[in-house]
């Protein structure tokens, strides 16, 4: 029974920041795309869905991490689902208490956070293997990254689809809204465009690094010879 316990990696800033950009759940891991495409037709909806997801992600990861040594492997997924469903139910009541209008706008997508693979994925892959603090910080980073992605999509879609941002008119009233942007195809178009742009920038950055690396190798070998 004497098995060496796995040494946990130290808590660094990277635990928090990874989820925001380097391992962004939407743009890098492509997780939870159903609400990403469905509710991002305005910045307000995106922010509300982002906040709800952060709440569920942080609370469920905290509880999963706190109970990780007591949950038998055989029933872990069932247990995680119960925990996640609990926090989704709570967030459902809380949003109704904050604003009925917002609740009606988000429709069934609040309840559908239960099946968002980002939440279950983080519970299984991270919170069940890491300390309470690290799990909470990582969940917060992931949640912020998810919200950032939702707002990036929602901003473009609301701007082009309605000429507004957060309800404020940005383009002149002569602007003909691109209705397609606030319809489901608009979600695919904007997500695809963001992925194209982000991957293009990443590739250029990687190419530059490789070029710099090989250039420095050449200089070293020349000076060596």
């Amino acid at each position: 029974m004497s098995k060496a316990t796995k040494k946990e990696t130290p808590l660094t800033m990277d635990v928090f920041t990874a989820g925001i950009w380097k391992e962004n759940p939407v743009f890098v891991m492509m997780l939870g795309l159903c609400p990403v495409l469905a509710v991002t037709n305005s910045v307000e909806n995106s922010l509300a869905m982002g906040m709800a997801s952060i709440f569920v992600l942080v609370c469920s990861n905290a509880l999963v991490s706190a109970l990780r040594n007591f949950i038998p492997k055989q029933v872990r997924i069932t247990t995680y689902i119960i925990i996640i469903a609990t926090f989704v139910t709570l967030v459902d009541y809380i949003i109704q208490a904050i604003s009925l209008d917002l609740y009606n706008k988000l429709g069934a997508f609040i309840q559908l956070i239960v099946v968002n693979c980002l939440i279950l994925g983080r519970a299984e892959a991270y919170a069940s293997k890491n300390s309470f603090t690290k799990s909470v910080i990582s969940a917060l980073g992931m949640g912020l990254g998810f919200t950032l992605a939702l707002v990036m999509l929602g901003g473009v879609r609301e701007l082009l689809g309605a000429g507004q941002l957060l309800g404020y008119q940005i383009f002149s009233l002569n602007f003909q809204p691109w209705i397609v942007m606030i319809l489901p195809p608009g979600g695919f178009i904007v997500l695809g465009s963001w992925l194209l742009l982000i991957n293009y920038i990443e590739q250029r950055k990687t190419g530059k690094l490789i070029a710099e690396d090989s250039a420095s190798h050449c200089t070293v070998s020349q000076s060596g010879s």
Partner: peptide, 15 residues
Amino acid sequence: LISTLGVVAMLSGFL
């Protein structure tokens, strides 16, 4: 197994 699920379900119900 049953007691784990029972405790988590009770905690969930309470919240």
